[in-house]
Design a protein around this nucleic acid. Sequence first.
DNA 1: CGGGATCCTAACCGATACTG
DNA 2: CAGTATCGGTTAGGATCCCG
Lengths: 138, 138
Amino acid sequence: MDTVDRWLDPSDLVDSYVHRCPARELLAVLADKWVLLVLGVLRASDGPVRFNALRRRLDGITQKMLTQTLRTLEREGLVHRAVYPTVPPRVEYSLTELGRDLGRITHAMGMWIVAHQEQLSTARVEFDEREAQLPQPV
Amino acid sequence: MDTVDRWLDPSDLVDSYVHRCPARELLAVLADKWVLLVLGVLRASDGPVRFNALRRRLDGITQKMLTQTLRTLEREGLVHRAVYPTVPPRVEYSLTELGRDLGRITHAMGMWIVAHQEQLSTARVEFDEREAQLPQPV
DNA sequence: CGGGATCCTAACCGATACTG
DNA sequence: CAGTATCGGTTAGGATCCCG
């Protein structure tokens, strides 16, 4: 079975992407507030999703950012955009093959985050408490 | 064996993190230009890493951003910071247990990116070519 | 309905200078 | 060595208006 373990080999990844290179381009794309969420929603939907439907599922996103995010993902070949020239217009988004593949990893990341929420909040609180003690800036 | 597949179950992740919630906080942290790279370098090193060593491995990062990134990761409980009050001072960074766990997933992501670089560049080129044909903005 | 085009502000971030 | 502090340019991104 095709699992993400395929990518978990011990070879030295760092030298491959730490320096400025094509790989950093996609990294920059993924390092975005909305990209991971959009991928998540598209992945969770079992068919194409219309623009406003997508918008409604992403609490807080503006139409500008959604458009921008979708364009970027389309350019990377992760998202497919289908336009039906009806009236009113209808545009449907879905993941490409490549997008679905990557989606499995980002999904794993999302699951990890949700599963560790409490450890993370605890860490934040403790850090902030430690911070609150030391300073003495007159 | 403990693999990231643990997090690849089909349950509905979206409802858990699409809305504003604690989970989105870490997502916001990860959605950063440097965070994934820093995690990657720390993960690849087999011992603690000093500040400037870290800096040298991250091509293009400024000392300000590295400091900031490390502080954030420390706050999230992903990175441990050890200060040795010697002269000159010495500060060593390493992943926490939590950080190593998450690091396995981000590493998978990095590997995926590197493995699919060419498909991604191709997609970009094709998209840009399609773009270059349509417009007619007199 | 699914955007494009503007305007405008907050934040980010790089550069520089200083410190224990 | 490993930061902190400050300043200033750039940009991200929200709000608003409009259009096919």
